[in-house]
Amino acid sequence: MSIQHFRVALIPFFAAFCLPVFAHPETLVKVKDAEDQLGARVGYIELDLNSGKILESFRPEERFPMMSTFKVLLCGAVLSRVDAGQEQLGRRIHYSQNDLVEYSPVTEKHLTDGMTVRELCSAAITMSDNTAANLLLTTIGGPKELTAFLHNMGDHVTRLDRWEPELNEAIPNDERDTTMPAAMATTLRKLLTGELLTLASRQQLIDWMEADKVAGPLLRSALPAGWFIADKSGAGERGSRGIIAALGPDGKPSRIVVIYTTGSQATMDERNRQIAEIGASLIKHW
């Protein structure tokens, strides 16, 4: 067993022997301040990774656009098919120029040779490549099948209805392509620590998230040296922004954090800054 596999296998073990965790309302004060600064709703939840206990939450059962955070769930569904012998990570998928959609920095470079399922998941999570996500959605049967996968996990809230990039439209009061912070946090925890996926697939999923290259201005910008984070960000229309993450000190994750916002007129930089400040408060009061 590799060191990384050992780390993920012992996530519940280490967490069980940690000192009790206590909620700190100071972080919620910052979440509410972010709402004021952005002029928009902000949803927040913080779960203990081992027990699933909610440590703090704000608007945990209000719907927010998922945006690209759905790509972690998508690759979880792909990995479940791999575990069941219905898919192979090494299978190569070929596609054409007509398949390319807006923001496809990886797939646009491989029109000639195609990409493997493993490479597509890596591109979808680490670079948020939209064509990679659409190609992977095709392998599982489309958005409705991802929703069905989530329902089978016990998540009857999260739903995907459309493809990239239309799913980022974020129309107010439109339930399409949305989740709730509580539902997303619980589902992410199941994917990373539950028995739904094999140990190898859980490790692969967290490795992809740990290698995320496009979430630097968010929670990662607030992390002290030595902290662990595996995350996936999302951005959408109407001032929408979000991030889902597993993080913790001492090089291992111990909490799940989900943050979503929508309806702001603020710039992307300002949305990023507010999420980073929430992260800084979380870490300060850990």
Rank of each mutant, 00 (worst) to 15 (best):
residue 63 R to D: 03
residue 248 G to K: 02
residue 50 N to I: 11
residue 148 A to D: 14
residue 89 L to V: 06
residue 198 T to L: 10
residue 223 L to N: 03
residue 46 E to W: 04
residue 280 A to G: 12
residue 26 E to K: 12
residue 44 Y to L: 11
residue 69 T to K: 00
residue 253 P to F: 09
residue 106 V to A: 10
residue 132 A to T: 02
residue 182 A to F: 15
residue 51 S to G: 09
residue 257 V to H: 01
residue 222 A to Q: 14
residue 175 E to H: 14
residue 137 L to P: 00
residue 188 L to V: 12
residue 63 R to M: 07
residue 87 E to C: 07
residue 5 H to K: 14
residue 24 H to T: 15
residue 281 S to E: 14
residue 75 C to N: 02
residue 149 F to S: 07
residue 80 S to W: 12
residue 271 R to H: 07
residue 104 S to E: 01
residue 173 N to Y: 12
residue 84 A to Y: 10
residue 139 T to P: 04
residue 84 A to N: 14
residue 177 D to R: 01
residue 167 L to T: 08
residue 120 L to R: 00
residue 34 A to C: 10
residue 83 D to Y: 02
residue 40 A to T: 08
residue 279 G to E: 02
residue 57 S to M: 13
residue 106 V to F: 07
residue 281 S to Y: 15
residue 93 I to H: 05
residue 103 Y to A: 06
residue 249 P to T: 08
residue 42 V to W: 09
residue 48 D to P: 02
residue 15 A to V: 14
residue 172 P to Q: 12
residue 197 L to R: 05
residue 56 E to M: 08
residue 176 R to D: 06
residue 270 E to L: 10
residue 85 G to D: 10
residue 32 K to H: 12
residue 91 R to L: 05
residue 77 A to N: 13
residue 135 L to D: 01
residue 272 N to D: 09
residue 54 I to S: 08
residue 181 P to K: 00
residue 255 R to F: 02
residue 150 L to P: 01
residue 216 G to P: 05
residue 164 E to R: 01
residue 106 V to T: 07
residue 204 Q to K: 10
residue 196 L to D: 11
residue 188 L to G: 04
residue 211 A to I: 06
residue 113 D to I: 07
residue 64 F to H: 01
residue 103 Y to D: 05
residue 6 F to V: 11
residue 190 K to Q: 12
residue 243 I to F: 05
residue 90 G to N: 13
residue 73 L to S: 08
residue 200 A to R: 13
residue 242 G to P: 00
residue 25 P to G: 08
residue 172 P to K: 10
residue 198 T to V: 07
residue 264 S to G: 10
residue 52 G to I: 03
residue 147 T to M: 07
residue 176 R to W: 07
residue 183 A to G: 07
residue 242 G to E: 01
residue 173 N to R: 14
residue 270 E to D: 15
residue 63 R to E: 06
residue 18 C to G: 10
residue 48 D to V: 05
residue 250 D to F: 12
residue 110 H to S: 08
residue 165 P to R: 07
residue 146 L to P: 00
residue 127 M to F: 11
residue 108 E to D: 11
residue 197 L to N: 05
residue 142 G to H: 04
residue 211 A to N: 14
residue 112 T to M: 10
residue 122 S to N: 15
residue 44 Y to G: 02
residue 96 S to D: 12
residue 70 F to M: 14
residue 31 V to M: 08
residue 137 L to Q: 05
residue 274 Q to P: 05
residue 60 P to L: 10
residue 51 S to I: 04
residue 271 R to E: 05
residue 90 G to I: 11
residue 155 D to F: 01
residue 194 G to M: 08
residue 206 I to D: 04
residue 83 D to P: 02
residue 49 L to D: 02
